[in-house]
């Protein structure tokens, strides 16, 4: 192990303990670690953006590209300069143009993706749940498949209903439709509870792997770096 590696391990060990110190309570060591981390992140992001995006897309075409490439590179550069005016309150109106550009593209991309990638295929999948010809790994017989299909259909519809009609105030004399929606909401909430329970378990699993990795690192460090240093 080189000196650089040892120093790196000590640094990683110290930073890990500084972050873990948050469990005792907020403290200056934790804040120091966070500020170091932010600085490093910003530094990496800055260089990667310059190397990977600005140089090849703006600078290189302007220097060595054809006339067409130069023209194409000038537009984002112009928009980028306009974006900088957002910093100044006096000129901020000009900055609205690149932001409007970004918002327009983002809205269109989001709509296109949601319609073609989620809404159509997932509605189709909900309808096709009763297609008994498709095999599903966990269903051993057609009857069970049908029951599961019904549960999935009910769960999908009631969850959707909860999120779209779920938060209105309760009325004393609900109409038939309102009673139906209230029933949907209650069933939908059960499915949401199960889904969120699953999500909670997933987030916890991810965090637990991180904890195991960090604690393994601490144990390894103490065994391989600190103990030999102390004993020598």
């Amino acid at each position: 192990m080189s000196n650089l590696d040892i120093f790196g391990a000590i640094l990683g060990f110290a930073l890990t303990l500084m972050v873990f110190s948050y469990l005792i309570g907020d403290n200056p060591l934790f804040r120091v670690a966070i500020h170091i981390f932010i600085g490093v992140t910003a530094g990496f992001v800055c260089i990667i953006v310059i190397n990977n995006v600005l140089l090849p897309r703006m600078i290189v075409p302007l220097i060595s590209g054809s006339m067409e490439e130069r023209l194409l590179a000038i537009i984002p550069m112009l928009l980028g300069w306009l974006l900088l005016t957002k910093i100044s309150p006096r000129l901020a109106t000009f900055g609205n143009i690149p932001v409007a550009f970004l918002v327009g593209v983002a809205a269109a991309v989001a709509i296109g993706g949601a319609v073609l990638g989620t809404l159509f295929p997932q509605i189709n999948a909900t309808i096709a749940i009763f297609d008994l010809t498709t095999s599903r790994g966990f269903d051993t017989n057609k009857g069970l498949q049908l029951v599961n299909g019904i549960i999935i259909l009910v769960g999908t519809v009631t969850t959707l209903a909860y999120f779209h009609f779920g938060t209105g105030p309760q009325q004393a004399n609900p109409t038939g439709l309102q009673s139906l929606l209230r029933g949907f909401n209650q069933v939908g909430q059960v499915f949401i509870a199960i889904t969120f329970g699953f999500l909670f378990a997933g987030v916890y699993s991810a965090a637990m792997v991180a904890l195991v990795e960090r604690l393994s690192f601490i144990v390894d460090f103490l065994k391989s770096v600190l103990l030999p240093l102390l004993s020598s």
């Binding site: 989001a110 949601a114 319609v115 809404l119 599961n148 999935i152 999908t156 499915f191 969120f196």
Partner: peptide, 30 residues
């Protein structure tokens, strides 16, 4: 079973809801 039936049903409802929400919000911008 939880992963493939009730949790998936809830998640599919959520995904459809998100999709509809994105379309509505996006169209308001457009």
């Amino acid at each position: 079973w939880i992963a493939q039936v009730p949790a998936m049903a809830g998640a599919r409802g959520l995904l459809l809801g998100i999709g509809l929400g994105i379309v509505a919000a996006g169209l308001r911008v457009l």
